[in-house]
Design a binder for these strands. Structure first.
Lengths: 206, 206
DNA sequence: GTCATCATGTAAGCCGTTACATGATTGC
DNA sequence: GCAATCATGTAACGGCTTACATGATGAC
C-alpha cells in the first residue's frame, strides 16, 4: 500500500506530490519508487477520506531557494505567495498535511499484514518510528513469525522432495532459507535494540 | 510472467491446469503460487499463441490409479477412455503439451529482464535447465550485473544521506546491501558450478 | 448419499504501470 | 527564447487476486 509511504513522509513535514515521489526514490531507491500515475490518485483518495488536507495557508511551503530579489515590498511578496496556490485554472503546487485521522490510519497500517517484503519495508521505513514502543515490538515480532513460517515451509518442501529436486530448484530453496534466516537474525537485532532503547529512557536518537 | 512456470513445467511432462498449480505450489511454496484465475486464462492464451496444445490422444495421461475392475472388456475400456476427454458439455481434464514454438518461447524467456526477484526465481527454477550452457551463463551473469547495480544504488543513497538517515531506514538499507551481497556471492557460486560442469563433460547431473 | 477433492472456468475488482497532455519556473 | 526541470493530472492497459459457478470422481 502506497498509503504507508505517503502518510509516513507527511507525518514528518508537509510535502506536495512531486516532492513526495522524490523523497521516496531518494530514500529507498528505484525498487520502491512509485509512479505519478498512482501517487496523485492516491493523494486525492486520501484527501477524500480525510487522512490528509491541503496545507496552503501561510508560506509554510516556500522551500529552500527564496529568490534573492532584495527589494520586494511586503505587498509584492504577499502577491507572489497568493499567486502560488489559490489559482484553480492552471494547476499550482498542492502541498499536503496529515490530519489526526491520517495519523490514526498510519498507526493502523502498522497492524496490517507483514508477509509481503515490499510492504514490510515501507512499514518499517515510514511507520515504525511514529508508533509507540509496544506497537513497534508487536510489529517486529509479527514479521519475525511470518518469516519463521516461510522458513518452515521451505524446509517441509526440501524434506518432502529431498533428493528428487532439480539442481536449480534446490539451490534456490537453499539460498532462500539462508536469506530468510539472515532476515530473522536481523529482526532479532532490531528487536533487541528496541528493548534496549525502551528500558534506557535516555538517548532515543541515533 | 506466469508463462515461465507453465512452459518450464510442461517441458518436463504433459500436465493439466490443476496439476500445474499443485506442482508449482509444491516446488516453490505459497509465495510463488498462482491462482486458477490467472492460470487457466494463461493456458488458453498460450494455446491460442501455439505455444502449447492439448495432449489428448492415447492414454498418455491416465495417471497412477487405474481402477482395479479386473473384468472390463476392451470395448468398455475404450468407452471409458473416450468419455474422459472429448466431451465438450461437461468439462473434462485437459492436459497440455508444449510445442516447438513453446520451447522457442521458453528459451526466449531466459533473455528477458532479470531485475524482478520473483521473475528471476521462476526463470532459474523452470527455464535455466532447458537452456544451452552458454545461455545459462549469460542469464546468471545478467542477474549478477543487475544485483551489482542495486548494490551501487544503495551505497550511493547511504553516502548521499549518510548521517541524516532515520535509524530504521538506515538499518533497512544496510540489511538490504548485506542481502544483495549474499545473493551475488550465491550467484558466483552458481556460475562457478556452471563452468565446472561445462568443462567436465562427465556427470551433468546432481 | 454425501463429503472431500479434483477439475475448469468466468467476473469483478485492485493496484499498479506506461504513455500522454498540460502548463509553470528557472537557468543560460 | 529555449531547454530542463518542476508540477499535476488522465487514459489505457496489464496482471493478478478473490469470489463465484459448475460439475465429476472416489472414499466411506
Amino acid at each position: 500500500m502506497i498509503d504507508v509511504a505517503i502518510l509516513g513522509l507527511l507525518r514528518e513535514r508537509d510535502l506536495h506530490g512531486y516532492e513526495l515521489k522524490k523523497q521516496l526514490h531518494d530514500l529507498l531507491g528505484s525498487r520502491q519508487a512509485v509512479s505519478f500515475g498512482s501517487l496523485y490518485p492516491a493523494l486525492n483518495r486520501l484527501e477524500r477520506e480525510g487522512a490528509v488536507q491541503e496545507a496552503a495557508k501561510e508560506g509554510v511551503l516556500v522551500p529552500p531557494s527564496i529568490p534573492m530579489t532584495g527589494s520586494i515590498s511586503g505587498e509584492a511578496a504577499a502577491f507572489r505567495a497568493a499567486r502560488h496556490r489559490p489559482v484553480r485554472g492552471p494547476r499550482g503546487k498542492k502541498a499536503y498535511r496529515i490530519t489526526p485521522k491520517g495519523e490514526a490510519r498510519l498507526s493502523e497500517l502498522m497492524t496490517g499484514p507483514v508477509d509481503d517484503d515490499r510492504t514490510f519495508a515501507l512499514q518499517l521505513a515510514f511507520c515504525c518510528r511514529w508508533a509507540e514502543p509496544p506497537a513497534r515490538l508487536r510489529f517486529l515480532e509479527r514479521r519475525k513469525e511470518s518469516l519463521e513460517q516461510r522458513l518452515a515451509e521451505g524446509h517441509r518442501t526440501m524434506r518432502r522432495r529431498g533428493e528428487r529436486l532439480d539442481r536449480y530448484v534446490r539451490s534456490l530453496l537453499e539460498h532462500d532459507s539462508e536469506s530468510t534466516r539472515s532476515d530473522i537474525s536481523w529482526l532479532d537485532h532490531l528487536i533487541a535494540t528496541e528493548h534496549r532503547l525502551t528500558e534506557t529512557p535516555g538517548g532515543n536518537h541515533a
